[in-house]
Design a protein around this nucleic acid. Structure first.
Lengths: 319, 319
DNA sequence: TAATTTGTTGCAAAGGTTTGCGAAAATGTT
DNA sequence: AACATTTTCGCAAACCTTTGCAACAAATTA
């Protein structure tokens, strides 16, 4: 229509310096008028690059991952990227299948929280080698040399322990998750270490619970036993819920009868009255940060190794 | 490598009947060996079709939408589709921007929950006309002739009201959301109607709350007032949380001092002790169903108009 | 044997964009 | 006026796959 070649149009549309200003203007005006939109299939074929990021999470449900996704989406969007969400349900095979899907859809990069059973990382290395950066987040493998971004688990546990000590508690029940999980080990170690250093006189009972119900039972038996704790620390939301249910059943009021503190993303602690004091491990911050790390990879900048998301105390009224 | 033309390979890989069996076998074996994967950019360019579905939600956070996304992802995956998640933050402009992104990424179809302020649907019509089916879910526009899938709001409110009546409650405080929302109007109407028909003698107080805090204040003033209700109905999770906090502050125990019932996706009610009885409006079911509806559109089947997701009672111990 | 049918395969175009390189036109320099 | 330089633009190849059509060989039929 403008008696102009396709290449001129292409260059005009993206402000190539070779093109005269008035040509650019004419082209852009007409493009606007015609509601021209470049065919992304063709663009992607030609440039061999997409603006899609694959995100593999164990589960989309779960307060933590969805706030992660929300934060990630916001950040990714601002850079023109879209998200392809995949859930692995904690099955290593699903993870591989999802990774295949990322390759098939030619994702620009992949963000993944691996399941606890995942040990074979060759598929991920192959993806990285083929030019698609992979960034691990939250549940990260125990190897060097891959970009990871995760919560400062040790710091969070330290802050919780420190706060308990500062509040002059005397008898603490601390409930952690599955022993085998690396997150549990890290938090437990920092927690115990802090008490040994700063409060060796405080009585400490440690329990492990695989789910909410079990945490409730642990709390129940401690609270009805001979050596009733004055404070219960919960490593996660799931545990916290079980603990609070137990306290409610026993008609104990918080914090007069029993103090509570937990590590959480923040949603759950705010549901109760009084709100539960917790150490915040922000999912949305993790999302934003992990996009940044991936983005650096995409731009070819040197990798950053392991990045930590800090933790901070959010005071409720439960301790 | 096989002394065979590209077209033969292409056909062999997809079991075209024209190709000899032994050729197919040889091709497939070599393809496997070389880890050949078709370049989806080229496929998409050629076929002009993607396997990506755009999903536009007001917010990814929020218990309802994330269970929706989880259900949707599961169903979509089983049909080979992936999800592109976009959040509109309840801004009509963001919605349009997201719709543009769907077009740009050449999504096969779009699922959208429109914000309450969205009134101009021309952009959606244009997308539909251009060949990309659009299915509305949850928050749907008030027009005919577009595919929609939503929660049976009236049924849910009816079930709640009916249960309250059957339990012989005498004085009910019902807290609803913003008056202007269509979801509020539908639920309120069905709720009131049920009481008029089946329990006209029951005392009914209606309140509207725009957030959790306000719901808490409503509950507080009713519970401390002269005409203390024996039951509180909450239209949503957000309201329920405020109400329970108020009850906790007043040291009222559930259900002896005050009965509770709500409409919910199920996550929140299970956090309390006793668990709250609620009418389930399943997000994940809505997700699965809305994929089905979109899928039918993609296959060119006749549209189904409005599809409803049923509601059912989940008994906790709160009433 | 010639004609027809069936079974296999290849040619070439198409899909829309990007980009290196060369060509033409406009401008500047002696 | 002749040449060099800069500005502006178009040609054509490339990205990889899909698919209608034609071609060829083999098998069948008349």
């Amino acid at each position: 229509m403008l008696q102009i070649s396709i290449s001129t149009v292409s260059r005009a549309l993206k402000d190539h310096p070779d093109i005269a200003v008035q040509t650019k203007i004419k082209v852009k005006e007409l493009a606007e008028l015609m509601e021209y939109e470049p065919n992304s299939f063709a663009v992607q074929l030609r440039t061999n690059a997409s603006k899609l990021i694959g995100v593999i999470v164990p589960e989309i449900s779960g307060h933590f991952y969805h706030s992660y996704i929300a934060g990630l989406e916001e950040e990714a969007r601002s850079w023109g990227y879209s998200l392809m969400i995949l859930q692995s349900n904690n099955h290593p095979e699903s993870e591989l299948e999802n990774l295949r899907l990322c390759r098939f859809n030619r994702a620009a990069g992949v963000l993944i929280a691996i399941s606890s059973q995942t040990s074979d990382l060759t598929a991920f290395y192959r993806t990285i080698d083929s030019g698609t950066p992979v960034v691990f987040f939250d549940k990260v493998p125990d190897v060097k040399g891959v970009p990871k971004v995760c919560i400062a688990d040790a710091e969070a546990a330290y802050l919780a322990a420190d706060l308990i000590i500062k509040k002059h508690k005397k008898n603490v029940l601390a409930i952690f998750g599955e022993k085998s999980l690396s997150i549990t080990r890290k938090r437990l170690k920092a927690f115990l270490g802090t008490f040994q250093r700063n409060g060796p006189e405080i009585k400490l009972q440690i329990a492990h619970a695989v789910n909410s119900d079990e945490a409730g039972k642990n709390a129940w038996s401690a609270l009805t036993g001979p050596d009733k704790p004055d404070t219960i620390f919960s490593m996660s939301d799931e545990i916290l819920v079980g603990v609070i249910k137990a306290a409610n059943k026993l008609k104990l009021s918080i914090p007069t009868d029993i103090s509570m503190i937990s590590i959480s993303n923040g949603m759950i602690p705010s549901l109760f009255e009084p709100e539960i004091t917790y150490i915040e491990t922000s999912g949305s911050l993790l999302g934003k940060k992990s996009f940044d790390v991936l983005h650096r990879c995409l731009l070819g900048k040197p990798p950053q190794g392991e990045v930590m998301i800090g933790a901070r105390i959010i005071e409720g009224g439960s301790i």
